[in-house]
Design a binder for these strands. Structure first.
Lengths: 196, 196
DNA sequence: GTTGATGGTGAACATTCTGTTCGGTACAGA
DNA sequence: TCTGTACCGAACAGAATGTTCACCATCAAC
């Protein structure tokens, strides 16, 4: 699964070159327009090397994303190292995006396989749904629980989108403050007064 | 520009067949995987007919979207036929999406050219930014104006996404109520008390 | 109805991109 | 030093795109 540690030094080098080439290209043009030929030209590897390492160009991005999302899960989405009232590990997510900025920026600019963004979206939405179910009696919600979960995930991602789009002018902590001010009041409004 | 009114009856027929075929296919598989051959097979038109009417398969969707977005603009985004405090014509948008459900549903399921969703997103965001600038003194905002605009557009779209995803179980009016409860409190929280 | 114009048809074609194969070379790691 | 593995590059088959063309169908106007 993770070919980062083991494997031949040459393999790692090739994979790195290819991933970097693709991320670079994605800052210039949209993903679908990029051809395998362009990738291997920029990476300066042979065609057969490319296909020895990846199934296709989608696979390049997917494997990179799988790795980064794995980190996200184990570092920020497991356990409950954040205040329960927050419902989502928003601060952790802002920090995570900042840490892996090149990948996320390329993803955004290249308008790439939307399925990745959607993967994050789903993960956040489900996480929020679970937290909400714990935080409030479902029957007491004035709005369906899964709408609230969708809203939370969507609003958080739209802040992240804005942040990336504008060259990340704020710190994760400032973004977290904005998130708390802007997004959370709506959630508290539909929860019956309870758990602060 | 708009080939719906003028043009030969046969042209209109062909275009309609092709658009419907594509929308149908998009309910089954993602846009990128769909080939022109599949479209013309399902539409039952000749290959050359397809290319006589459209530049490529993106063009099919684009022309349809351009038309529907044109309607959206003239019916819901111009003037200010909605309460100024709402900042966005959310109810109008919910109604509009319901009215053109097949297109929006296909767009969503097919994970199609994200640029269309982004087009709507941009339009909403800019609209919100303009309204915000009128509704509040920029200097008095505790959060940058364009973040709020982005948030509004993103949150509204995420509600629409949920709505489409779940087969539109609510009326536009119910969705509007949810939007008001869930999304607007955050906006009021960052506006200095003013204009109710 | 005849007629002239416009659109539709299917087959053929060049082109582009994809993904695979293979013999030979270079390098990593033990 | 030696063995396995990755890289290389060229060649290739297959798929999909978009174009062209000669022929046929349909329109609407006379």
């Amino acid at each position: 699964m993770d070919r980062r540690e083991k494997a031949d030094r040459r393999s790692r080098r090739s994979r790195r070159l290819i991933v970097d080439a693709l991320l670079g290209l994605m800052l210039e043009q949209r993903f679908e327009r990029i051809t395998v030929q362009e990738i291997i030209d920029r990476a300066d590897v042979g065609r057969s090397t490319f296909y020895a390492q990846f199934r296709n160009k989608e696979d390049v991005l997917e494997s990179e994303f799988a790795w980064v999302l794995g980190l996200l899960h184990e570092q920020h989405l497991t356990g409950a190292q954040y205040p329960a009232a927050h419902l989502l590990p928003s601060l952790g997510l802002f920090r995570h995006v900042q840490e892996h900025r090149p990948l996320y920026a390329a993803q955004l600019r290249g308008l790439a396989v939307d399925s990745h963004t959607q993967g994050v979206h789903r993960a956040l939405r489900d996480r929020a749904a679970r937290e909400l179910a714990l935080a409030a009696d479902t029957a007491e919600l004035t709005v369906p629980l899964d709408v609230v979960a969708e809203y939370l995930a969507g609003a958080l991602l739209s802040l992240i989108q804005w942040w990336l789009d504008h060259g990340m002018p704020h710190t994760p902590e400032q973004m977290e403050a904005i998130f708390q001010q802007l997004v959370m009041p709506g959630v508290r409004a539909v929860l019956p007064e309870q758990r602060r």
